[in-house]
Design a protein around this nucleic acid. Structure first.
Lengths: 151, 151
DNA sequence: CTCATTGCAAATAATTTGCATGTAA
DNA sequence: TTACATGCAAATTATTTGCAATGAG
C-alpha cells in the first residue's frame, strides 16, 4: 500500500469522472485487489474474482470481467496471455516496461528489462517499415529454484 | 512444392512408422495443406480445415485438430498464440528460428531474425539462473503497407 | 483380424452478453 | 430521477473428448 498504489487509485477515480463513469463499491474493491496483487503477480479473472469476494461476497464474475476490461482501456491494467489459455492482468505502471521469464515447471513469472534488446527491436521494426505499438518478449524455461539440487 | 516440402513429408512418414502410427489419407492431406501454406502463413485450425476439405470433403475438424497436435509433437509444426484467441500453426523448419512482427491493422505477420537479441536474451536468462526452453518475441504495430499514403 | 484412426456430436473451458434490477450522481 | 452498473444465467467461441464405425497394416 505504498505511494504508487495511491497514485493508481487516484488515476482510476480521475479517469472515471473524466468519462462520466460511476464510482462504485465493486469497482473500488476489484481495483484494490488488483492494485495490491497485480504488481507482482499476474492475476487471472478467476483469481481476482476470488480475492474480491473475500472482501465483498456479492461481487459477480461478470463485474470483475467488465471492470478489468475497463482498467485495461483506462491504461491501468495490461492484458497478458501466457498460453495457458487464460487472460492475466498486471498493473501497468507508467513508463515501466518489462518482459517476462516464465517457468514451465512451477509457473513462476519473473520480470526483466533489457534496454539493448528494446533498442535492437526498434531497428528491426524500422528495417521493415514497421511502427511499433507494443511488444511482448517471453522466455519460457526452468527457473533456478526448479533446476536446483532438489529440482 | 520445393525441396523442403519433400523433406517435411518424408520426415512425417518416417516419424509415423517409427512410432507405429498409421499413414492415412486424411493425415497426408492435412499435412500437405499445412506444408504448403504454413511456411509463409500462420494458419488457424479453421483455415486448415477449410483448405483440407477443398481436397477431401470428408475430413472432419477433429481430425485436423488431432493431426496438427500430432505434427506439433513430432516437431514438424509449432503452435503460436498471437492473442486473437486462436491457436495458429506454422511449419517448424529445423534450425530456423525467427520471431514476429504483427500488423494490428491488416493482421499481416512478418518474420525477423536478430542474433544479437537472442544473445542478449541468453544473458538475461543466465543472470536469473534460468534455463531457456523456448521463447517468443512479438512486436505489434502498423506495417509499411498500412501506414503508407493510402493507409 | 486388430487396433489405430476418423467423424460426428457432445463436453469443456473461458470469455462475453442480455436483461431485469439496483444505485450513484 | 435516470442512465450507468450489477448479478445472474444464458450465449459464444474455440478447443477437447467419447464413442461407434471405418480402414490401415
Amino acid at each position: 500500500m505504498g505511494v504508487t498504489q495511491k497514485t493508481l487509485e487516484r488515476r482510476l477515480l480521475d479517469a472515471l469522472s473524466e468519462r462520466g463513469l460511476r464510482q462504485t463499491g465493486q469497482r473500488r474493491t476489484i481495483a484494490d485487489v488488483f492494485f495490491d496483487g497485480g504488481r507482482q503477480e499476474h492475476l487471472g479473472l478467476e483469481e481476482i474474482h476470488r480475492r474480491a469476494r473475500q472482501r465483498d461476497r456479492r461481487i459477480g464474475y461478470a463485474t470483475v470481467y467488465r471492470t478489468m476490461k475497463l482498467l485495461s482501456e483506462l491504461g491501468l491494467a495490461q492484458e497478458r496471455r501466457f498460453g495457458d489459455g487464460l487472460v492475466r492482468y498486471e498493473v501497468a505502471e507508467a513508463g515501466h516496461h518489462h518482459d517476462h521469464l516464465i517457468c514451465t515447471r512451477c509457473a513462476r513469472i519473473l520480470e526483466f528489462e533489457e534496454p539493448r534488446i528494446e533498442a535492437l527491436q526498434e531497428r528491426v521494426a524500422a528495417a521493415h517499415g514497421f511502427t511499433i505499438e507494443w511488444h511482448r518478449h517471453e522466455i519460457y524455461g526452468v527457473c533456478d529454484r526448479c533446476s536446483g539440487p532438489a529440482g
